[in-house]
Design a protein around this nucleic acid. Structure first.
Lengths: 125, 125
DNA sequence: CTACGAGTTAGAGCGCACTCTAAGTCAAGC
DNA sequence: GCTTGACTTAGAGTGCGCTCTAACTCGTAG
């Protein structure tokens, strides 16, 4: 598949795909006879995983570290696992913070709803 | 309290506090006799709330919108509530995505742990 | 044959949210 | 009286993660 189709299917822009290749997040893609990138569908799995890392707030530098380890083969498994474990902890912390913030928002929203009701019904003591 | 102390107590840098004032996220602070900002402790509550909005991914433009409504008094309550409700939905969605990603990470980590064990014990069928 | 659309590269530009610099003011301690 | 350190301003600079431009090359349709 060519870059346009990959862009469609991955949700990344073609610009971003080229950028990711340039910095090493995506492997250098094979080129066809006219020097255009020719992708295997398997790249979609990797892009989806990168998307998860990104969605969970991993900076590109760290994704790059993971990508490089991956490229070095199975002897880097332990280090990759360690990296993901550390990241996992960060994600769990993020979730906890968002949940706490959700409570704060709900309290604030309830406060506004309350004030609104008090005005509507005009039932101050 | 002066800006240095507020920085300490709020966790923002003095640079950031001035920046927030400049763009309107923080109200223009009263100045003392030597034209230095002099803060009331109550500002800490507002900064903490801004911190929640920021932690939940609200862009500064939107915080600014909220800050301006707030400054206009109680007649903007309905709009502020609507803004927070919309944001609340986004936060809930974020949490859901992070939780899904957490599962993906756990699966990946389990895969590495598995591979490691297989090597250690060398017990392939 | 030519026009078009999709691809190529190197490198410039952008939006966000700060973060810092330079040059100056002020109050307190030696 | 002088130094020190915390403050002031306007405005420049930074890092991140893209996003776009310019100039070019291809393959295909009319």
């Amino acid at each position: 598949m060519k870059i346009g189709e990959l862009a469609q299917r991955s949700g990344l822009s073609a610009y971003t795909i080229r950028y990711y290749e340039r910095i090493g997040l995506l492997p250098y893609a094979d080129r066809d006879a006219s020097r255009q990138r020719d992708y295997d569908a398997s790249i979609l799995t990797w892009i989806a995983f990168l998307g998860r890392l990104k969605a969970t707030g991993m900076p590109i530098q760290e994704m790059l570290r993971y990508a490089m380890l991956r490229q070095q083969g199975p002897q880097t498994n332990a280090e990759r696992m360690a990296l993901l474990k550390a990241h996992r902890q960060g994600v769990a912390a993020q979730i906890a913070e968002l949940q706490a913030s959700l409570l704060v928002l709900d309290t604030k929203i309830a406060g506004y709803a309350d004030a609104e009701k008090r005005i509507e019904t005009d039932d101050e003591p």
